[in-house]
Design a protein around this nucleic acid. Structure first.
Lengths: 209, 209
DNA sequence: TAGATTGTTAATCGATTAACAATC
DNA sequence: TAGATTGTTAATCGATTAACAATC
């Protein structure tokens, strides 16, 4: 039943299940079998049942899964029912693009503050949030709870800033800088290495058929 | 030796090797053993040797690997020595963030055109490139070679646009829309699902320790 | 030559798929 | 009850790690 060790592969699949279930919900589908879902998603029914059973029995024999219930349960597993307070480091194009993602709010993600070191940006507004001086980072974290910090600054600056975040007690980092951050074991880093994604695509196009 | 079937796991690791080798190069390191590299990267030496040998013998027994040579060879494997012509669909924040990545040029990625359907954006410049009307997409592709199309528009629009791209003959899609595109087998799609990455992070923070 | 380190085969580990008894 | 489909165990497959002979 629930919570042995969950592999990274399963964790990465959870949001995708969540997305398909949301889609089914908007289509008004109330129940679905692992077989039907597997056909939609292009995975095996076996994998779906195996994955879900790592977290508990969400289905009913002979019936399948209730879409709404399963959607909500997977949401809870991923923490979508909690508030996650985000601060952003870097108010450049990428930072702004992420900040504009209004959608995040309905999943419990709230962007609370944005920091930059550029004097031209400090004091301006991004998505209704005033950009603060990066020098006031520690002061801010001392006074406000922070669950996740987004890093969208060049890699040279990302390393020292990550150290400051860790020292200040931030436990989650969403890293867009092209560098592997070295953090203690109790800090979670999720990397988004866009250039590596593009290089993988280049490889695959080149070796296509 | 070279080119049996290369698994997705290996392809995803290649850009990371490339990044570490570039770093070694800037540090002036000329040779490195799989053992030393494994310590830097936090993987096993065995995996490094195994991975590299899928593409051929780049090392020398008793010596190790020449950093520059290995860097260049991995670059060639990923197609960094070729020109990849990119068009971008969507001139919003995310599109602009990606376009600003000047760095891509030295890896052979060239952004040739940007398309949008918003009349306020059409005709404006992003990174020195004029934003074109999405209605002129087919016309453009007919006259200009395109290797990769970047999709940074909402998912509802992404699906029909992807169909148009495929029909026009584009073989590589870098997809940022929150949807799985349905394309023929000879078209490569690389997905960047940012919201799924954030949800994975949320899960890991919640279940930390 | 002796020492070091690769290239490659063999062993292990983990993840995916198949099968089926349990049960709604 | 009969049929359908899950939850779960067993079998398979693939990827990672270990070991070592080849060789620079």
């Amino acid at each position: 039943m629930s919570e042995q060790h969950i592999s990274g592969a399963i964790i990465k699949r959870l949001p995708r299940y969540y997305r398909y279930l949301e889609e089914l919900l908007t289509e008004g589908v109330e129940r679905i079998s692992s077989q039907e879902l597997s056909e939609r998603m292009g995975v095996t029914a076996s994998q779906i049942r195996q994955d879900l059973n790592h977290f508990g029995g969400f289905g009913q024999q002979g019936y399948g899964y209730k879409v709404l219930y399963l959607y909500e349960e997977i949401g809870k597993i991923m923490g979508m029912d909690r508030i996650k307070r985000i601060i952003m480091i870097g108010a450049g194009n990428l930072g702004q693009a992420i900040a504009n993602y209004a959608n995040y709010r309905k999943r419990g993600f709230f962007i609370e503050a944005i920091f930059d070191k550029d004097p031209d940006k400090i004091g301006t507004e991004v998505q209704g949030i005033i950009v603060r001086d990066i020098e006031t980072l520690e002061e801010y974290i001392k006074l406000n709870p922070v669950d996740i910090a987004t890093i969208t600054i060049p890699k040279e600056q990302a390393v020292p800033v990550a150290d400051r975040l860790v020292k200040a007690g931030v436990k989650g980092i969403w890293n867009y800088a092209h560098v592997d951050l070295d953090v203690p074991a109790d800090v979670c880093v999720e990397n988004v290495h866009l250039s590596e994604s593009l290089m993988s695509l280049s490889y695959r196009i080149k070796n296509q058929k």
